[in-house]
Amino acid sequence: MAMRLFWWALLFCLATAQAAVVGRIEAAGGQYGRQDDAGASKPAMLNGVVEAGDTLITGSGGWMVLAMSDGASLTLRPNTQLRIDEYRYQAEQASESRAWLRLVRGALRSVTGLIGQSNRPSYRLATPTMTIGIRGTDHETVLQDHSADADTPAGVYEWVHEGESVMQVAGQELVVRPGESGYLPAADGALPRLLAKRPRLFERMQQFGREQGLDQILERLHDRGEGGFRARPLSPEQREHLIEQGRQAVRERIEALPPGQKPDREQVQKSVKQRLQKLERPPTLPRKRVGG
């Protein structure tokens, strides 16, 4: 127990100053990678960790499915770049949880987890031109930089499978509901609007997903809803696996520190023991219907 608490303490302390483990790479294919703040490559492998501050990248034909610490999933389509600005889940203090993501380019499908269910304002997906919030949602966002297809001019596209999302720009909000498509043109000063029909780019993404078996992967992680997926709490085994990955990452960081910079065991234990006792077995929130 003492050693277990010690590693928890080190994980907590180092996470505040460096990167915190926030999820894992559940599945991936084609070209994909992971970078730090400076753009340096980091290990990206199946079941490998994802940390706060990471930028996940897919190339042409590449894709990734990330399983996050609160039961959410993030599916990156080809030619996508996603930054995890901040991601932390605190079951006891929902107001302190954060899921702040930044879609730099490409396309993302997000099934929000317990963070979005317990504290909706704490979920935020930023793009270069707007921000997207949610109301318990399985949604897709696409940045279309340029296009020769008249059906999909440049801009940001939003499609909701289940729940609702909110496109926010210049103090204006557009609510996108299941089966609806939102669009923000790339022109300066433009405001989001609903489209009369779903753009073909979402049909192409669905076809790519069928070819790669992405729905089957999401079914491993989530419950099926009326139109999309609903997040479920992490199982004890999943949580323990994530914790162990965090411990290993901390061990590696400690070994890489110069002798004079390694943390003192007794000091670390004393400073965080009471807080970590609550984190030993964090309670799961009651299951909610996403979009309900």
Rank of each mutant, 00 (worst) to 15 (best):
A2V: 12
P192I: 02
H222I: 11
D36S: 10
A19L: 04
T75Y: 11
D264C: 13
E158T: 03
E96S: 14
R239V: 06
V175G: 00
A150N: 07
A44K: 00
D37N: 14
G59N: 08
G59K: 08
R102L: 02
T16Q: 12
A44M: 01
G209Q: 13
E86M: 04
T16A: 07
G136E: 08
L74I: 08
R34F: 10
M1F: 11
L66Y: 05
I243D: 14
T75L: 09
K278H: 15
H146A: 15
D151P: 04
E219V: 03
V22T: 05
T284P: 06
G39K: 04
R210E: 15
A148G: 10
M130A: 07
R275L: 15
F202N: 06
S118E: 13
L103W: 03
L191M: 12
I217V: 14
V21K: 01
L101D: 05
R4L: 14
Q35C: 15
G62F: 12
S95R: 12
E26T: 03
S95A: 13
G227W: 10
A15Y: 00
D70W: 01
R177W: 02
Q274H: 15
P185Q: 11
L221P: 02
E162L: 09
L11S: 13
Y32E: 05
Q269S: 12
G182N: 02
F229A: 04
G225Q: 02
H161K: 08
T127C: 02
V22F: 00
S118M: 10
A52C: 09
A9D: 09
S73I: 09
T80L: 09
S118I: 03
F229P: 03
G23Y: 01
L201N: 12
A38G: 14
N47D: 06
G246V: 05
A20I: 00
R265P: 13
A154K: 05
A256N: 10
A148H: 13
A44Q: 01
E86I: 00
G136R: 00
A38M: 14
V49N: 13
D149G: 06
D70Y: 03
I25D: 13
L276Q: 05
R120D: 13
R247E: 07
Y157E: 07
E255L: 15
G48V: 01
S118Y: 03
L234A: 02
K288Y: 11
S73V: 03
I217H: 02
A170S: 08
L125D: 10
T129K: 06
Q238N: 05
G155I: 01
V160K: 07
I25S: 07
G260P: 15
E140V: 06
Y87I: 00
G59H: 10
Q31M: 13
Y87L: 04
V104Y: 06
G189I: 12
E96Y: 13
Q245S: 04
R275G: 15
D37I: 09
Q248F: 10
V160L: 08
P282C: 01
R24F: 06
P282Q: 00
S110I: 13
D36M: 11
D151V: 14
L76G: 06
D54M: 01
I132Q: 12
G39F: 10
I132W: 07
L76A: 10
H222F: 09
A2H: 12
A40T: 09
G260Q: 15
Q277W: 06
G171W: 00
A231S: 09
W7Q: 02
G23S: 03
A15I: 01
A20R: 02
L285H: 09
R210T: 13
